[in-house]
């Protein structure tokens, strides 16, 4: 932009700034009310969501507690050994393939113990 354009721009901006500074009190008050209205809506929206946060948290915690303490302890009607929880199975070093035949090993264990009783 050339110098006359920049000068014109400065002058118009100065003039506009004066008109902004000279807004009357009634208008400023209405602007303030509009701003507070907008902010109140934002506050209401946030507090509305936050109001449910503790209840949601407690419900989630109770659900977790129920799952942990009363979770399923048998699979397909087969009783797992007491100490063997799901996490232990997943974290254990044993081959996961063995778990697919767990029912067979349980049967083998039963047969062996029955054989032991007989003998």
């Amino acid at each position: 932009m050339n110098e006359p354009d920049e000068k014109f721009e400065r002058e118009t901006r100065k003039l506009f700034d004066r008109s902004v500074e000279s807004l009357d009190a009634s208008t400023l008050s209405r602007l303030n009310r509009s701003r507070q209205l907008a902010l109140a809506e934002a506050h209401q929206a946030h507090t509305g969501l936050l109001r449910w946060a503790p209840a949601t948290g407690i419900a989630a915690a109770v659900l977790i507690a129920v799952i942990v303490t009363r979770g399923p302890t048998n699979v397909d009607g087969f009783d797992l050994p007491v100490a063997m929880t799901d996490m232990e199975i997943l974290l254990g070093e044993e081959s996961i393939a063995m778990l697919e035949d767990l029912e067979f090993y349980s049967w083998l264990d039963t047969v062996e113990s029955e054989d032991g009783d007989v003998s």
Binding site: H43, H46, L50, A53, P54, T56, G57, I58, A60, A61, V62, I64, A65, V68
Partner: peptide, 22 residues
Amino acid sequence: MTAGVAIYAVSCEAESKGARTL
């Protein structure tokens, strides 16, 4: 124990979110 930790975590998160909102 787990439930207590979960409640604490949720309340901390709500508090932090409230401060950010403010």
